[in-house]
């Protein structure tokens, strides 16, 4: 199954639309609630980062029997220092965004925490691509 979403920068009222849709789908196909939670947290944070930091972006979610694969491509300022951006507490969010309770610098760390595979590629002045993979099979 594949799903696509478009996200506009600055559109906070729509933030969470993709996460909410994907949560419903995963519930319908009886994915383990613990896995659903991890997908929801990672996708929500990634979605909000496009809203808070980029101009616009596209989300693709591919669900296979083994995994949930999410790719987010945005056009925007990009991330100057990805390593730094991944640190808990690092944020360049505007004061308006912070007042809303976003911009705690916990988004990328939350994604990393919940993903099995997480890669960030970014080009300053162009945009950012995130790839998030979460396995849905018990491999323990």
């Amino acid at each position: 199954m594949e799903f696509k979403f478009h996200v506009e920068g600055g559109d906070f009222t729509s933030a969470g639309t993709a996460s909410s849709q994907i949560k419903k789908v995963l519930k319908q196909i009886n994915i383990d609630p613990i896995i659903i939670k991890r997908v929801v947290v990672a996708l929500y944070e990634a979605e909000v980062n496009i809203v808070a930091h980029a101009h616009h972006g596209d989300i693709k979610v591919k669900i296979t029997p083994q995994q949930v694969y999410i790719r987010l491509d945005d056009e925007g300022p990009g991330i100057e220092n990805v390593e730094k951006a991944m640190q808990k507490g690092f944020s360049t969010a505007s004061s308006k965004v912070r007042e809303m309770g976003f911009g705690a610098g916990m988004g990328l760390p939350n994604i990393k925490e919940n993903a099995d595979i997480f890669t960030v590629r970014s080009e300053v002045g162009k945009g950012t691509t995130l790839e998030i993979t979460i396995s849905t099979v018990n491999n323990g």
């Binding site: 947290v41 809303m100 309770g101 976003f102 705690a104 916990m106 939350n110 925490e113």
Partner: peptide, 26 residues
């Protein structure tokens, strides 16, 4: 802090906050 709640609040919790905008419902 929304990311704090997103990352760490447990299912079935009551969330105490002063944030009033729509994202809290999401």
């Amino acid at each position: 802090l929304l990311s704090d709640v997103m990352g760490f609040a447990a299912v079935g919790s009551v969330w105490i906050t002063l944030q009033t905008h729509k994202n809290v419902m999401a």
